[in-house]
Amino acid sequence: MSATCPMTGGAVIADGISKEFGTARRPALHDVTLRAAPGRCTAVVGPAGSGKSVLLRCLAGLERPTRGTVRIAGTELTALDEAARTEFRRTRIGVVYRQANLLPQLDVADNLLLPLDTAGRRADPDLLQRALDLLDVRELLDRATPALTRAEELRVAVARTVLQRADLLLVDDPTAGLDAITGRHHLRLLRRRCAEFGLPLVLFSADPATAAHADRVIALQDGRVVQERDRPADCGCEPGSTEHIA
């Protein structure tokens, strides 16, 4: 089993996560450990069936691991009952799926504020203005949601997570539906903005190129970690650069 690291403020720690399904106890994850620090990007890469989606669901509180623990900003998610886990997930974890989960009947402005409105909270005015500018969302506010491009949907979904003051952002297949140039631009933007907002970012992708934009890479195969590597701290790379990345 992997050793447990001491908790640091705002960090995300999945420690020795295993997940089995069905009466046959079919393993989907086996002893997976992941660290995600505030403002840092972790990429979880692997082919279809490698366990990426199951790990995402465990980190998001949608699945309870068979063994192991998940701690997010000091809260042990795996120790919460279903109601408390649902509330934690709703208010403190941002998940951006391929479809971005925007409501088509609402415009962009209403989609941005919907989670806060549902929770009876108001957006912090300074944070709102900063998110609109840094994520290039301001010009989209009056747009109808179905008219957005895939890249615009992703920016809105990330801005919504920032406004929630979430403790973690999980992004599934961040370059799906984007051409190579737009995909690279989106990953650079995502990484830089999460660093500026101090938000732990975990990307899940079957595209190995995603690893070039991460501070840490975890490769999964058949539910097991088969490789881990860090971006060298002194590599001199601009965020999003592919230089010095194997």
Rank of each mutant, 00 (worst) to 15 (best):
Q164R: 03
D126L: 02
D215G: 05
V225C: 14
G61F: 01
A131S: 08
D230Q: 13
D142A: 10
V171S: 06
L134I: 12
D142T: 13
E238H: 12
R122F: 03
G74Y: 00
I72N: 12
D230C: 15
E238G: 14
D117A: 14
D81V: 11
G183D: 13
L114Y: 12
L113E: 03
A209W: 06
A119R: 05
G51I: 01
R191G: 12
L106W: 01
G177P: 13
L56H: 10
L154Y: 13
L34W: 09
L141M: 04
T4D: 11
I13A: 13
P174W: 07
T175S: 09
D179V: 00
A211P: 04
F21A: 13
L190E: 03
T242I: 13
T242E: 15
T8W: 05
Q105H: 13
C5L: 15
D173T: 00
G49F: 10
A159N: 10
H30M: 15
L56D: 06
A159W: 04
V156R: 12
T210M: 05
C58S: 03
Q129V: 02
E196G: 01
M7S: 02
L29T: 06
C194W: 08
L62D: 15
E76V: 06
I218E: 08
L80M: 05
L59W: 10
P174N: 11
C235R: 12
G49I: 10
G49V: 08
A123N: 04
L170T: 04
R25C: 00
H30R: 14
G39M: 02
P239C: 03
A159S: 01
C5S: 15
V95H: 11
R122P: 09
L34C: 00
A144L: 09
L154F: 10
R160T: 04
P38W: 03
D31F: 03
C41W: 00
E82A: 08
A144V: 08
D230F: 15
L190N: 02
